[in-house]
């Protein structure tokens, strides 16, 4: 992408050169047998792993959702029983609500990440590497370590969070074991730990925007902030879309933070448990594998619907340059 932009057409998006589709088709048809075999051999490790560790368990889980489990693996077909139970279970509704709150909060990391990326993408900023490393650190830290540290930060008796709030006269609480605050406290940790990764993706997106656009806009007298709104934000929408889709999929499957920071005997469990935590509770703790499989399948359908919806509405706001 290095089409010339004349000063007379500021901020106009240049047409992309159309790829020669015929040329591509010819080359793929022209592959020799040996090449094809090599190709399959090369994707085999990933494909086998995906089939064995993801696709096959998924199919099994679908089958399990129509069965009732014994304690140690034996299962009998029970038709739609599990799904009837899912519909009636108040816990599922509650955990769905918690999951949506968590997902909504995690999405806040996207505008934050864009803002951070824009700040770090400025020319001539000193110590960029240090900042980038700092923001990226949570991504390479184990969730268990993150949870442990945040549990201490949130502690109602001696936690630094309450100490800081105390300085400005706000009374704190036991953030993680108070049923009114637990899911939000966990959501904040989720924002904190995902903002770094998203920031790196946005940085990559921003660096692929041709400098000419900004030069042209400057000549026309557009302020830095206006340039950010009119050039940067529209041109990184493909990244924004990708990050949003992945964030939603991951957040809907939230488990580790709830498991590590709340746990089974906390008074805040019911107001913090997510759908996957409920799956764990039913399937692993209470030995109801079939019912847990049905919960997993309901979650799958939900994720598919939300993801499809995102793909539908993307046409209205994503600009593929």
């Amino acid at each position: 992408m290095s089409s010339p932009v004349t000063a007379a057409e500021p901020a106009a998006v240049p047409p992309l050169p159309r790829p020669d589709l015929r040329a591509r088709r010819r080359s793929s048809k022209g592959l020799r047998r040996g090449d094809v075999i090599w190709g399959y051999l090369l994707i085999a490790p990933t494909a086998i792993g995906l089939l064995g560790l993801s696709i096959w368990p998924a199919i099994q889980t679908f089958w399990f959702s129509f069965t009732t489990w014994g304690s140690f693996g034996g299962h009998t077909f029970s038709g739609l029983d599990n799904y009837m139970q899912v519909v009636k279970d108040p816990e599922l509704g509650r955990s769905l609500l918690n999951t949506f709150i968590y997902t909504g909060m995690t999405l806040i990391s996207i505008p934050l990440a864009i803002a951070l990326a824009a700040l770090l993408n400025r020319k001539g900023l000193r110590g960029v590497g240090v900042y980038r490393t700092l923001y990226f650190l949570p991504v390479v830290t184990l969730p268990a370590a993150i949870s442990l540290v945040w549990k201490l930060l949130y502690n109602g008796d001696f936690g630094p969070v309450n100490a800081l709030l105390g300085l400005v006269g706000i009374p704190g609480t036991s953030w993680l074991s108070n049923s009114h605050t637990a899911i939000y406290a966990i959501g904040i940790v989720s924002i904190w730990s995902s903002v770094g990764y998203n920031m790196v993706l946005f940085l990559a997106g921003m660096q692929s925007i041709p400098a000419e656009y900004y030069e042209a806009a400057s000549i026309d007298g557009a302020s830095k902030f206006r340039q950010f709104l009119r050039i940067t934000v529209p041109l990184i929408t493909p990244t924004t879309f990708f990050v949003a889709v992945i964030t939603v999929i991951n957040s809907l499957q939230a488990f580790d933070l709830v498991y590590l920071m709340v746990g089974p005997t906390s008074p805040a469990l019911q107001s913090a448990e997510t759908v996957v935590y409920l799956f764990y509770e039913k399937g692993i703790i209470q030995s109801q594998g079939g019912y847990a499989a049905a919960i997993a399948f309901v979650l799958l359908v939900l994720i598919l619907i939300i993801t499809l919806f995102q793909f539908r509405v993307q046409k209205r706001w994503v600009h593929y340059a």
Binding site: L53, T61, I246, Q253, Y280, G289, L300, I303
Partner: peptide, 20 residues
């Protein structure tokens, strides 16, 4: 590829969360 892959990813990850 992204559309297909995201859907596949959604399907695969959400179902393989841990019965095995």
């Amino acid at each position: 590829g992204r559309k297909a892959a995201v859907l596949a990813l959604a399907a695969a990850t959400s179902l393989s969360i841990g019965l095995s």
